[in-house]
């Protein structure tokens, strides 16, 4: 069985080690947008594999296997982000030079942020860690799960996982 930190099992929030385990290395991040799969507990679930048109999430031998991503094949298209029932997949794009990065996050709330709107950025523990501008909102499968693209400083890509509309 895969080892999970006490912190995660007690609070539902990743430990630093677990964040590092799922984040892509710098050379992958440089290449373009890629998916970060934050699903590290063996649960009976596999739709991420079937939802990826590029075969980037490997086929499951057993439905309880952990998803395994091949960043070489991933285009950052976000189809898996909007399909995963755990809402555990996020796309990071840190390929630009400089301090700017984009995060593509699953979103199932009302109200829906608008393009250009400034929203609060929340970390894995729900703390507001900054503000960012929404660049786009799409609904890949037309099933209620939206994907919000938000601008964040590059040093926050491993930290921010939710946005909140403040009006």
């Amino acid at each position: 069985m895969v080892k999970l930190s006490e912190h995660l099992r007690r609070t539902g929030v990743f430990s630093m080690e677990e964040v590092n385990r799922v984040m892509p290395p710098p050379e992958v991040l440089k290449k373009g947008p890629v998916a970060v799969v934050e699903c590290i507990q063996e649960i009976p679930c596999d739709p991420c594999h079937a939802s990826c048109p590029f075969g980037a999430i490997k086929e499951f031998k057993d439905i309880n296997d952990l998803p395994e991503i091949d960043w070489e094949k991933c285009t950052g298209c976000t189809l898996c982000v909007a399909k995963c029932p755990g809402l555990a997949i996020f796309v990071v794009d840190a390929s630009c030079d400089g301090d700017d990065a984009l995060l593509k996050l699953p979103y199932e709330f009302y109200p829906v942020p608008e393009k250009g709107e400034e929203v609060e950025l929340l970390n894995r523990a729900g703390e507001v860690v900054g503000k960012g501008e929404v660049r786009s909102v799409i609904e890949p499968h037309k099933d209620g799960t939206k994907v919000v693209t938000v601008h964040v400083p590059k040093d926050m890509i491993a930290d921010v996982r939710h946005v909140r509309v403040v009006r």
């Binding site: 539902g12 929030v13 934050e38 755990g86 555990a88 929340l122």
Partner: peptide, 23 residues
């Protein structure tokens, strides 16, 4: 219980909304 019983992805989903979980 000392640990969260449900799937941790579900727990993470509400934690990032700011809902605390006290085991």
């Amino acid at each position: 219980m000392p640990y969260i019983g449900g799937y941790l992805v579900h727990a993470s989903k509400i934690r990032r909304l700011g809902v605390p979980i006290y085991t």
